[in-house]
Design a protein around this nucleic acid. Sequence first.
DNA 1: GCGGCTATGCCCAGAAATGGGCAATCCCGG
DNA 2: CCGGGATTGCCCATTTCTGGGCATAGCCGC
Lengths: 251, 251
Amino acid sequence: MKHFNLTEELAHDISGADKEERLFAALSNAADRMGFDLFALAFDRRGGGGEGASMLVHNYPDAWANVYVGFDLSGTDPIRRAGEKSMTGFQWRNVDHYIPLSRGDRQLLKVARESGIGDGFTVPRHLPGEATGSCSFAVAPNARIPLEMLHAAEIVGAVALAAARQLIGTGSYTPRAALTERQRECVLWSARGKTAGETASILGISEETVVRHLKIARERYSVPCRQMLILCALFDGVIGFSDVYDWWRPL
Amino acid sequence: MKHFNLTEELAHDISGADKEERLFAALSNAADRMGFDLFALAFDRRGGGGEGASMLVHNYPDAWANVYVGFDLSGTDPIRRAGEKSMTGFQWRNVDHYIPLSRGDRQLLKVARESGIGDGFTVPRHLPGEATGSCSFAVAPNARIPLEMLHAAEIVGAVALAAARQLIGTGSYTPRAALTERQRECVLWSARGKTAGETASILGISEETVVRHLKIARERYSVPCRQMLILCALFDGVIGFSDVYDWWRPL
DNA sequence: GCGGCTATGCCCAGAAATGGGCAATCCCGG
DNA sequence: CCGGGATTGCCCATTTCTGGGCATAGCCGC
């Protein structure tokens, strides 16, 4: 593990960053030392009750940054979507191992390449309900990605995200609109695709009561429809992904 | 970092496990060396198109294991839910920092304590669309949790989950039911709580067409209702959490 | 070029969800 | 012991969704 000392050094440097400027400098140095040309760290905090906050530290070409922000491409960026699907870092060239790429996605990647961004490696961290972030390292088009440094990049990226999380403030969890047990059950079965009537049969109560539970649950979250109720419960951790997982695929 | 060598040793031991039995032995040893009494590793693979697979390796008391499996408590286990909300390991005593605890949740934790499981530390890893897993280390009731070992446990747990992932087979992603661009947009706005009519206004097309897109999207996933369509798209990475996040809180 | 897929538009009937009001019982905490 | 919340039950009117069928136009690949 000849890179161990480098990793340690870079990680220490980054975790010591107490301001965005220092994080930029540390990441810039780290990317350079690992053989990358570019880096970008994005961190978004949400949920919990307070307003969200976000951080973007990067040295991407202005041309690309302007396009990205100008057209609000973060909403469709396939790299970002893939980041929400991986627990480890991934190379951009393998992004279609994680998500299906639409025509528009390929176009976006092509434009990025034309703007001076070649292949890259992204370390994602996602916390449904709290925050989502990614730390990417990239090379110029046609440049070779330093494969032997991906392991180091994985650690450095994770440390950088932890640092960003500290900088942006972790915030404390506020249980906000905790649902009652019965409401939670109704939401859960609803997320599993059951109608109010089916849920009623399962729980052994009247359909009207299920409707009532869902109604109150919607009011707690101040949402008008079932879709959002389910998503809110999911984000809040009131129901889990695995609670639902087994129900939509096998059927 | 006096524990560094121990961590390295345990991690190496665990990552060398090529069978479930060896993983059990390695984890058993690791838990012991770190000062824990109990451990439990759960790993569930899903998505991608193939059948799911799961692994459960633990040395929890039989009494508790029987109750847990018998009553299918995994569906309500607050520790598991919290694991889906944290990117780092967490102590069970702090579980309410991550999710709201209902009365039933507290009851479940109480029963666990009565079955011989005290405080613990869980390392979660979650990949929407591929797998979810957790590796927990626990002590007997009234025993003190080895706080100085949590950092080691974090690494050991992550290594164990990676090993489990290898053992269970990673499988490859099959793009299965990729939605078209238009369908994706309709699903996205639907997830944001818009009705078909509203979505139509936003996209500048007829409401009937939006309905049609959503209809075909449902057929692709073979789901009968909008809730599940959205969840499927979410799990597949066709839409991202952050795509929806900004829409339900601020409104 | 032709078949397949995509996007667009429209119609209909039945099922489900939504929003509102009303009322009973039970249990927990102040 | 009383108030508030949780749970249960029912009614109504309106909106939305779902599943079916039908048709046109454009684009891409074989």
